[in-house]
Amino acid sequence: MLLDLVVVVLMVCGLLLFLATTVGLLRFPDFYTRVHAAGKGDTLSTVLMLGGLIIYLLRDFNGETALTAVKLSLIVFFVFIASPTATHAIIDAGYESKVPYWTRRKGAGAGYDGPERRRQDRQI
């Protein structure tokens, strides 16, 4: 019962983080800040959900489920390496190709760059 509660808490936390990720992805003003939302929320929410599933599996503990749990934790480990790397690759590519940015400073710099920048981006 207690384990069930832990599972529920973990998975709901994961879901909430994913919700935050999605909201951030839709709401943030420019590409770079969206990467923040997507890159971070994605990692931990995946990990939390997988953690919840691991505990759910381990409720009836035997050799087979233990092995399965170890395999699942390998996915967790993989996510920890892969997710920041993918985030970095994406933001590096965006930076290199001069994706328009958003900034609060100065009236002229605020908002997106002019339309010609975006048209240039479309061509790719």
Binding site: F78, I81, A82, T85, H88
Partner: peptide, 13 residues
Amino acid sequence: TVLKGAAQLIIPV
């Protein structure tokens, strides 16, 4: 650097 580091870890696995 980052991609190479990740590749070193991930590829053999």
